[in-house]
């Protein structure tokens, strides 16, 4: 008899148990910008586009929107958000015309780069060299790689120990500021260092 009651109770509990609905919370970016998420189920579709707006799948399969707050998100999802790796960052280092010598101002960026890499667990670094359009395209291919290589060596000398350090040169093919051939454009004489 007791066993039967127990079985019925378990059955009832299973019937009554409703899992919490699947839910999405939209977050603002570090600059406050908010994108959009479109939630689709077989029964409907909803778009959310405001900071801390939520969408939840109801029992009937429809999607219902609502709102949370910065505080409630921090409380409920603090550990989850804490686990997010640092956002990838990108640094630009500039060069004296025709050389692989860094401009004095770029020393500051280099110091910031070094510090950033040091804070990341297992950093992965991509170094891409560029030139302006002074000189022959082939010579610029070589110069861009030479600049990138120089920065990679400099990072190693500074004691940076990344998981990976990839070095490429793109010559004058990928200008930051498009220019006519032969133009001395300091903003294009650069090495871009992407860190993640």
């Amino acid at each position: 008899m007791e066993a039967a009651i127990f079985a019925i109770a378990v059955g009832l509990a299973a019937l009554l148990y409703q899992p919490a609905p699947d839910k999405v919370v939209l977050l603002p970016g570090p600059d406050g910008a908010v994108g959009r998420v479109i939630v689709t189920t077989p029964k409907g579709e909803q778009e959310i586009s405001h900071a801390y707006e939520t969408a939840a799948v109801q029992q009937n399969g429809r999607v219902e929107t609502g709102s949370a707050s910065a505080e409630s998100v921090a409380e409920r999802y603090g550990a989850l958000l804490q686990a997010r790796p640092a956002r990838p960052a990108s640094y630009l280092l500039y060069f004296v015309s025709g050389s692989d010598e860094l401009t004095p101002e770029s020393q500051t960026a280099l110091a910031a780069l070094k510090q950033d890499v040091a804070t990341r667990p297992v950093p992965e670094i991509l170094v891409i060299g560029h030139t302006d359009r002074v000189g022959a395209a082939e010579a610029n291919e070589a110069l861009s790689l030479q600049r990138a290589q120089m920065v990679a060596d400099l990072l190693r000398q500074l004691g940076v120990q990344p998981k990976s350090l990839d070095v490429t040169g793109r010559g004058e093919r990928d200008p930051l500021v498009p220019s006519a051939d032969g133009v001395d454009e300091p903003r294009n004489r650069r090495v871009e260092v992407s860190v993640r």
Binding site: L26, R36, V37
Partner: peptide, 9 residues
């Protein structure tokens, strides 16, 4: 979920 440039949970 379809995503248009954003972050979410």
């Amino acid at each position: 979920l379809g995503v248009r440039g954003t972050e979410f949970i």
